[in-house]
Amino acid sequence: MRIRTTSTQRTYRYVRVTILAATLLLIVAVAVQSVTGGVPASLSAAYYTPAGPIFVSALFVVAAAFLALSGRSIEQGLLDVAAVLALAVAVVPTTVESEVCGPAGRCVPSAVVPTVVNNGIAVASVVYVGVLAALVLARVQGTLSRGVLLTAGSVGVVATGFLLWALVAPDAFLALAHNAAAVAFFLLIGAVAALAAWRPQRAPQRFRPAYAAVAVGILFALAGLGATLVAAALGADTTVPVPWVFLGEAVALVLFAVFWVLQTVELWDEPDPRLRAGT
């Protein structure tokens, strides 16, 4: 028996599947690089390898898909902000060890900086236009609410914060912005999973333990990453026996994939494209 679906429902199903496909694309590209060129010091360091174009494009796809799933729920507001953070992770690369870095040891190579500036200006411009367009459309459609205003304001604050940081302290921005955006991104994903796990009205009972495991797992992965980065800053060797930063980021990425599989399965038959009907 064929199950009838609406065009909108099918579209939102495909958007969810696209997020999974982009995540798998990134995993495969990094895996191939690890086999053929050695395991990178971190997942983010794939930016500087042949897997770099996939790394950037996958993050852009995830960001666009998050925004396409836009709704009025608390979870979706968090994912809208996460979309902007994903763009920041994509256009501002992590630092790498290089001879061109001088005494600092690690930096974003000067040859890459013009690309960061160009792409950063483009992304910031589109984010601001998108916020304005979202507010205008919400007003015209009669859907402007406190939640929409809060989400739009949060996105604007995040974009402005990164922009001001880049203008006021460009060296610190290049050194720290990528990690800050990545950690914040995974924290928001963990928060969405936690909401689904511990708010009974958010998810069916059978999904809640899995959401809880994802939320806790992301928290532990980020704590491990933080400890590793502190150890590296203190001079400890964090690449023996494996690159621990890469391992921590890989775990977080896998947990993100698991989270989105759960979301896709749970909401597959959802007639309304919003994650939840909450305001």
Rank of each mutant, 00 (worst) to 15 (best):
V113R: 08
V126H: 09
L144I: 07
D80A: 14
G120L: 07
L144T: 04
A122S: 02
A133D: 06
A122Q: 05
R106D: 07
C101P: 14
A90P: 05
L85D: 02
N119S: 07
C101T: 14
E97M: 15
P103E: 15
V100A: 13
T143G: 04
A86D: 01
G142F: 13
N119H: 05
R139I: 03
Y128S: 04
R106I: 12
V100D: 04
A138V: 02
A138D: 13
Y128N: 06
P114M: 00
Y128I: 14
V89T: 08
A104F: 11
N119P: 01
N118C: 00
A82P: 01
V92L: 05
R139C: 00
A86F: 11
L85R: 00
S98W: 05
N119Q: 10
V129F: 14
V123K: 06
P103W: 11
C107Q: 10
A88W: 10
V96H: 09
V117M: 05
L79C: 08
V123G: 07
D80L: 02
I121C: 00
L132E: 03
Y128D: 07
G105I: 05
V92S: 06
G130K: 04
C107H: 09
T95A: 09
G120C: 05
A82H: 01
G130M: 05
P103D: 15
A122P: 01
I121F: 06
T94A: 10
V129T: 12
A82G: 06
S98L: 02
S110R: 00
V84T: 12
N118H: 01
V96A: 03
V136Y: 14
L79H: 07
C107S: 06
V91K: 08
S110F: 04
N118R: 08
A83I: 01
V81F: 08
L78S: 12
G130D: 11
E99R: 15
P93T: 13
N118I: 00
A86L: 12
E97I: 15
S125W: 06
I121A: 01
L85E: 01
G102Y: 11
G105A: 02
E97L: 14
A86M: 11
L85Q: 03
L132Q: 04
V108M: 03
T94L: 10
A104N: 10
V131Y: 05
A111C: 01
Y128P: 06
L132F: 15
V100W: 05
A133E: 04
A134H: 11
T95I: 14
A82R: 02
L144W: 03
G130V: 09
P109H: 07
T94P: 06
T143A: 14
G105D: 09
T115W: 12
A88G: 14
I121S: 00
P114N: 01
D80H: 07
P93W: 09
C107Y: 03
V116W: 07
D80Y: 03
V96Q: 03
